[in-house]
């Protein structure tokens, strides 16, 4: 998903673009939409920061900063006391330890789908339910099924078998969320988690998942108002700092040649 946030004194507009590999090179379209909503021309934007996987695919960005740094900044702006961020996105998951809005350590899983939101998508598909329904369903379960396979493919098979055995759907879904929570917390524990813990990324909208993760960690995790946008918000804040610093020195920030075109590669 491509997200754009435009910030002046505060957020002026934000857009969450469509998903899919094809969309990756169309960051310019999402940008146009955001500009429209803010009622701004492109040239009035003084600085553009690109982040996330697609950060190299944004030809009109002035700087690329990793999602680690941007998330830290974004989350800290909502939760000044945050110490640990758990981000579960569509393609990866990560844990970030932060201090004063800056990352001090991090772990990532971008190697295997089973530790990311993709896992839920695939299983939802297999079960024939909508991914948005998973949270509610899981919360109704008192007896989550045990999903022992870690690999997505095996887990898919296991879910099918268990469904055939007559295990209720809600228990299965709860089991699936639990297994994702296990996997993610197993990774994040390498950081020696400190509170307060903030959950971001698309999965954070899933109430069942928030519950499962809180259960696993033994204390509640908090979710920002727009968990999908924290990275983008962080990027704008960092961009703003760069622009302001340049202004203080009476310079204009170092910028790239830019145009709002789609990129040629891919």
């Amino acid at each position: 998903m491509t997200k754009v946030v435009i910030m002046g004194e505060e957020i002026m507009s934000s857009v969450i673009g469509p998903t899919g590999p094809e969309q990756r090179r169309l960051a310019n379209n999402v940008m146009k939409e955001a500009l429209n909503r803010a009622g701004l021309p492109f040239k009035s934007i003084s600085y553009v920061v690109a982040t996330g996987y697609g950060r190299i695919n944004v030809p009109f960005a002035d700087k690329q900063i990793t999602e680690i740094t941007c998330h830290a900044r974004g989350v800290a702006s909502f939760f000044p006391d945050a110490r640990t961020i758990i981000d579960i996105g569509g393609q990866d998951s990560k844990g970030i330890k932060i201090n004063n809005g800056r990352p001090i350590d991090f772990v990532m899983n971008d190697k295997c789908a089973a530790g990311s939101g993709r896992f839920l998508e695939i299983i939802a598909d297999t079960l024939g339910i909508k991914i948005e329904e998973m949270g509610e369903l899981a919360l109704q379960s008192k007896n989550p099924a045990v999903i022992s396979n870690i690999c997505t493919i095996f887990a898919e098979q296991e879910v099918v078998d268990k469904l055939a055995e007559g295990i209720p759907l809600k228990n299965l879904v709860a089991g699936i969320l639990e297994s994702l929570a296990n996997r993610v917390s197993r990774m994040v524990k390498r950081l020696k988690i400190e509170r307060e813990v903030i959950l971001t990324g698309g999965v954070a909208k899933n109430a069942g998942m928030v519950q499962a993760l809180s259960d696993k960690l033994g204390y509640p995790v908090s979710v920002p108002p727009e968990p999908l946008l924290t990275g983008a918000v962080g990027a704008t804040l960092l961009g703003k700092e760069i622009a302001q610093k340049a202004k203080e020195r009476d310079e204009s920030p170092e910028r790239k040649e830019r145009s709002l075109k789609e990129i040629e590669i891919l």
Binding site: T66, M108, K111
Partner: peptide
């Protein structure tokens, strides 16, 4: 094949 994964990690480390 893992260069892309290393890239994010190393860049974030340098930012840190």
């Amino acid at each position: 094949g893992t260069i892309g994964q290393l890239k994010t990690r190393i860049q974030a480390f340098l930012e840190m």
